[in-house]
Design a binder for these strands. Structure first.
Lengths: 202, 202
DNA sequence: ATTATCTATAGATCTATAGATAATGC
DNA sequence: ATTATCTATAGATCTATAGATAATGC
């Protein structure tokens, strides 16, 4: 039971850390602010995570688990038709999106402790997306793009839309915009028989 | 001449601030670090910019001027065929890209002093891009998208590619990827006469 | 006079270490 | 014994204010 209590405590702390990072970024997040949210002193928190960086690492690992959990078991098991739902799911969780958008932004600064994490993760995500695109659309996408060329664009759209949406949710319908982009990847001039003129969209 | 010297000093300080923000973000940038780079004490710097926030505002205003200067006179005077060169230009200036990517990332956190700036700027940029897309491609783009639907995607791709490129420049050819995206917007199933099958790309 | 800088310093923080104390689980 | 927390505190920073001093421009 001690172990269980301890695990619960750690989970509480991680949730609080996620919140505080969303509000202030990692550099701006103080251990005291996190501790206060779970009714601990800053020193009490350090009993569970001995350094600030170890807390960040735990937050990032949790995300990894969440992502790979949501998309199946192994990283890279993405499917194009599930991306839609992922984006819609994200649109209902601005807090988490804000946490990771803030961390991504910070991570490009020199020697940021999350830099390696994001660098590696994007290598994997691009590869996973390329695989998913290949499975769904084959070797040639609109514009003559290969799955490997389209993958970074897909990832970029997801990230870029998140920033625009976080800054101004009333001006940007993130899920709709993302669907628009998927539409661009679906229909193109390349596939042999000219597709029938179709009136779609709302 | 006093005025001229002073202006020079301010310009030096802004350049230094740009660098330090690129390296550590705004929250992580200390006035001392900026001051040191121009051979001033922290208090000496405050003679030119009375608060840290006023320095940030000046950095952001300078960017505004740079952007609108590069693209013509008035904001929103974008042209699609110049975006290519803009992205290529950016690819040669990782420092500036890093500064503004870091600031954008931070700006989604609560009460960040750059939040209002970015929110407003994206409204303008989306509108400008929609206008440019309309001028270039008319009312209907591939996938049946309107210029207003495509604009946030265009902006998202630019921003998103910057993050991937900053994290891992050897894995991401930002200008090439951006050209790939523009290709997606150019050719689609919609335009009347079926475009000739063309082998392009390397 | 005004402008440019500096020294001194107040007042907040922040992370992390040391070491005490209480509670829990064998 | 081990685990969970706390108090005390060291040692760094950080921003900003106050006020002195030197140099510049009328």
């Amino acid at each position: 039971m001690a172990r269980a209590r301890s695990e619960e405590r750690r989970a509480e702390i991680l949730r609080a850390a996620l919140e505080v990072i969303a509000e202030r970024g990692y550099r701006g997040a103080s251990l005291s602010a996190v501790a206060e949210r779970v009714g601990l002193t800053q020193q009490g928190l350090l009993h569970y995570f001995p350094t600030k960086e170890s807390l960040l690492v735990a937050v990032l690992e949790e995300r990894d688990q969440w992502d790979t959990g949501a998309s199946g078991r192994s990283a890279g098991a993405w499917r194009v038709d599930l991306l839609d739902s992922l984006v819609e799911y994200n649109a209902m969780r601005p807090g988490i999106v804000q946490t990771f958008s803030a961390l991504l932004g910070e991570s490009v600064t020199d020697e940021h402790p999350a830099r390696g994490f994001f660098t590696q993760r994007y290598v994997q995500v691009r590869a996973g997306m390329a695989g998913a695109l290949r499975t769904e659309y084959g070797e040639r996408l609109p514009g003559g793009l290969t799955p490997e060329q389209a993958a970074p664009l897909l990832v970029a759209v997801m990230d870029g839309l998140q920033y625009q949406w976080l800054l101004d949710p009333r001006s940007v319908d993130m899920p709709a915009a993302f669907r628009d982009f998927l539409g661009l990847l679906r229909r193109g001039p390349m596939p042999g028989p000219a597709p029938a003129e179709a009136a779609e969209n709302l």
